[in-house]
Write a protein that binds this DNA or RNA. Structure first.
Length: 303
DNA sequence: TAGGGACCTGCC
DNA sequence: GCAGGTCCCT
């Protein structure tokens, strides 16, 4: 229950490029809403931020539950990583990606603090469009504890695994979750059985391959969602979620023989393996540039 | 391993 | 009518 902490934090965008709007609307984090005056209100784990976007800098107020607000924001958007150096490394290994990176200046991968928030956000994305995903994730957020007040409204964090496990399929169906109403509580109960949130934290320390295999065992989680969760919830940057957009881009750039050919699980796996062989633990970053660029160029889409 | 259909909603 | 992942069945 807190008002913003006293002093605004400023981020100089010339030193640390960050295309905030692109980063919070491309389907990697789902708890950010546009506010009047060029501002964004966002939640990450137990922290919340109100970010004013100015031409050369960001001005941030909010509350990080006793932690340093600026440090939490920098961690969320990987501002401690040198974006120019990272892009240069990608371009050295893959000069063919220059047009994709060139169209996406300031695009960064998010690094959400709370694996529960990110995991269940991605469970909402299966076979779904960004517009509807946002509503579903925010409905779940409405079940979470209040962590602040902004303009008279409570700001809530995402609920824990136990709260989601208690939900009934009927309640979620009424809330418009469609057939995900069945798998979301089942996935929460499966995570409970494996040790709850701590199990997800342990998977951050496991290898990418092991984490991916464990996630595949959860109800409603197939190869694509397992890669989304591995990449964003667990920070395994070798993960390459292959959805329809990434398939399209990868075929254009790397598999011209497969133009017009439908993606299959087998062929999608080949795409991920190819990017890992070429880019190592930057494969997830490469996926991100290709995905976001193709999403923007082809119009609306899912995640 | 591939190929089919069902699932739920909103957009074309 | 179709897109978009997962699951189940052949």
């Amino acid at each position: 229950m807190s008002k913003p902490t006293s002093d605004p934090v400023e981020i100089n965008l010339r030193d640390t490029p960050l295309a905030l709007e692109e980063c919070v609307t491309c389907g990697q984090v789902f708890l950010w809403t546009r506010r009047p005056g060029g501002r964004w209100l966002g939640v990450d784990g137990d922290a919340w931020f109100l970010v004013e976007v100015l031409p050369d800098r960001l001005r941030i107020v909010g509350d990080a539950n006793g932690q340093d607000l600026g440090a939490r924001f920098r961690r969320l958007f990987r501002l401690d990583e040198d974006l120019d150096a990272l892009r240069n490394t990608i371009l050295e290994r893959g000069p063919e990606l220059a047009p994709y990176l060139g169209r996406r200046p300031g695009l960064r991968m998010a690094r959400p603090t709370c694996p529960v928030e990110a995991t269940f956000s991605f469970l909402c994305t299966s076979n779904n469009h960004l517009a509807r995903i946002g509503g579903m994730v925010r409905w779940l957020q409405g079940l979470g504890p209040v962590i602040g007040q902004f303009e008279g409204e409570p700001v809530r964090r995402f609920p824990g695994v136990d709260r989601i496990a208690d939900l009934s399929e009927e309640a979620l169906r009424e809330a418009g979750f469609g057939y995900r109403a069945k798998t979301i509580p089942l996935a929460a109960r499966a995570i409970q059985e494996r040790g709850g949130e701590a199990w997800l934290h342990d998977l951050r320390r496991a290898s990418y391959e092991e984490a991916h295999a464990c996630l595949l065992d959860l109800p409603g989680v197939g190869p694509k969602l397992a890669d989304c969760i591995a990449l964003f919830a667990l920070h395994h940057t070798e993960a390459v979620p292959v959805d329809t957009h990434l398939w399209h881009a990868a075929v254009q750039v790397y598999f011209p023989d497969l133009r017009g050919v439908a993606a299959t699980p087998q062929r999608s796996r080949v795409v991920g393996d190819h990017l890992r062989a070429r880019f190592g633990n930057l494969a997830g970053w490469v996926q991100h540039f290709l995905f976001v660029d193709t999403l923007r160029e082809r119009g609306r889409g899912g995640r």
